[in-house]
């Protein structure tokens, strides 16, 4: 049974449960159920594609935050081999909201870095709900510099509500840490590929998100502010988050249309949490293909192209 279902997932889940039940009966020797099971399967697929073809942006936010959604380490464990985690920023402490390490990603040796959400309260407290302190960004930067030194490309997996807003974070320079990463990533000599796998929460996400190629999983979101934060500031009412989500245009499809990202990565029917293995396979292939393209370029050319890409972002009227 599932621990958590979203409202719009429920009718689909109910059908799936019914199919499970019938399959159990069939396994126990009851005959003549095949037709019914087949009928229900078709019905489920139809309902699912209906629901997912007209998802609202708020439903997309809910999927991006789904507690069963695969997290950074789930992807790392499914995709990479020889993963060795590296800890600490060599200055203050190890921030467990970000994981960083070396691994083999298909044919490539890479540094892989990403925010890590926890499963359950205890782990979430350790991971600080994937909201990094400055030392998390500094650890990320340290590992990027390490990979630059040894010519390894960097893959980042982004999934955070945002940088942590707290006293310690400010005392230790949250803003400076993020700014340093933006500048360093813009001119890192090795290829960088970023994938927003869940929540792309503002500056805290961007601090791992300046890259030659930026992809978003189909139901991931990327936003300048959380829908709740936007609603409470602009509409003076945090409960109007669904309205804010619509206004912010924060889905992968929106951002692809605006050319603010380089591509969308398909998720399995019903979202990544329904089939983490194929979700991981898609991510693995897209990133590998991007690295295949990026690695042959010389680093100066790659950096110029990367900077040029960002200078084109924006829209204005010039009189």
């Amino acid at each position: 049974m599932r621990d958590f279902t979203l409202d719009f997932e429920r009718p689909i889940c109910e059908l799936e449960d019914k199919i499970d039940e019938l399959e159990r009966l069939a396994d126990n020797g009851q005959t003549g159920l095949d037709g019914e099971i087949e009928r229900l399967r078709k019905k489920t697929d139809k309902l699912r594609s209906e629901v997912y073809s007209r998802l609202t942006r708020w439903q997309c936010v809910q999927l991006a935050r789904h507690p069963a959604r695969p997290y950074t380490l789930d992807y790392i464990n499914r995709i990479t081999t020889d993963f060795i985690e590296l800890h600490g920023d060599r200055s203050f402490q190890d921030d467990r909201a970000i994981v960083a390490g070396l691994a083999r990603w298909g044919p490539h040796r890479v540094a892989v870095i990403g925010q890590q959400k926890g499963r359950g309260t205890r782990e979430n407290l350790q991971r600080n709900f994937a909201m990094s302190h400055p030392e998390g960004y500094r650890k990320a930067l340290r590992v990027m510099k390490l990979s630059e030194k040894f010519g390894l490309p960097v893959v980042t997996l982004i999934d955070t509500p945002g940088a942590y807003p707290g006293i310690g974070a400010e005392e230790r320079g949250q803003a400076a840490a993020i700014a340093d990463n933006l500048l360093a990533m813009a001119q890192l000599k090795v290829p960088i590929v970023a994938v927003i796998i869940g929540e792309g929460g503002s500056g805290g996400a961007l601090a791992l998100g300046v890259a030659d190629r930026v992809y978003m999983s189909e139901y991931a979101i990327y936003s300048v502010i959380s829908p709740e934060g936007c609603a409470s500031i602009l509409f003076r009412d945090a409960s109007r988050a669904s309205q804010a989500a619509e206004a912010l245009k924060l889905t992968g499809r929106d951002l692809l249309e605006y050319k603010l990202i380089d591509g969308l990565i398909d998720e399995p029917p019903g979202g990544a949490h329904n089939d983490p293995a194929s979700a991981a396979k898609e991510v693995a292939e897209v990133v590998t293909a991007a690295l295949d393209e990026l690695l042959p370029l010389n680093h100066e050319e790659r950096i110029e192209k990367r900077i040029d890409k960002y200078t084109r972002m924006g829209t204005w009227i010039e009189k």
Binding site: L182, G203, V210, V224, M313, G314, T315
Partner: peptide, 11 residues
Amino acid sequence: EGVFSLMQMAK
């Protein structure tokens, strides 16, 4: 301006 604004940080 949503993510257009966010990207100005990177730009």
